[in-house]
Nucleic acid binder design. Sequence first.
DNA 1: CGGTAAATGAAAACCACTTTCAATTATCAT
DNA 2: ATGATAATTGAAAGTGGTTTTCATTTACCG
Lengths: 151, 151
Amino acid sequence: MKADCFDDALRELRERGFKLTPQRRAVLELFCSDGARHLTAQQAHDAIRGREPNVGLVTVYRCLELFTNVGILDKIKFNDGFDRYELHGGASGHHHHLVCTECGHVVEFGDCLIRSIERKLEKMSGFCIEGHWLELIGQCRECRERTEEDD
Amino acid sequence: MKADCFDDALRELRERGFKLTPQRRAVLELFCSDGARHLTAQQAHDAIRGREPNVGLVTVYRCLELFTNVGILDKIKFNDGFDRYELHGGASGHHHHLVCTECGHVVEFGDCLIRSIERKLEKMSGFCIEGHWLELIGQCRECRERTEEDD
DNA sequence: CGGTAAATGAAAACCACTTTCAATTATCAT
DNA sequence: ATGATAATTGAAAGTGGTTTTCATTTACCG
């Protein structure tokens, strides 16, 4: 549990005039806890329910939207049809995801590798590039080894 | 209009035992026409409606799915919530999209720039990378110039 | 505390997409 | 050609994640 991220977020909300409801605290606590990465609204709701049964899924959706607008969370999209959220910046700043097709294991990596591509493309296309989305899929080491054993 | 792509597709469908209905011909014609790139089902339906009013949106969805399974089309996903389709392989093979946030103008580019990143990541992560999805967004030259004029 | 505007929860709406099902039609055997 | 047959179609209903509506509750300020 990253206490300062939680306190910083509460302060940010208070300063902007938003009410600090138990529901919002519960969602914030979840996302400031260590294991919380790229969660869907449903996953967040399930995780919160145990501690705080009085939090509706709709409220979770609204918290996620609010926190994203305020800059506390980032909305990220895998190509699986679910909106996902994680702490803004996170431990490692802007990053991308490498997802295992077998077990769903996710590895994150920084975006320094993309910058050079962006510069090349800006020259080629005349675009001023503002952002990018990169997701890679494959098989993680564990799943590859298990698959080989099965043969 | 790429006549051979159209004929090849018809032959492929016939060989696999699918019926050559006017609806399927209309969808094929559209995707074999020169301007047809990364179309949504709705866009395809709108484009076809002019020539062939008797084609339902549902049928367009079914054609797109069938043609993708058969290998005539590729399904591609922008992060905008719409499934999009284009001719398999296309003129330029596997590629990525650079989308203008102002006018929606799309520039395509090949994936040779990604390969070196994939190799680095395989070493770092132990993953065997099978595929990737990259989309960049920004402002195209025209929109940037127009925006500057407005200031 | 008491007033007030913001926040919540349940239900309904949305929207892209898929499925169901009765009616139509391309294809093939005759 | 023609009729049999199974695939295909279109309309309507269903899905599933997300958003909106609206009456009720509640955090916050005075």
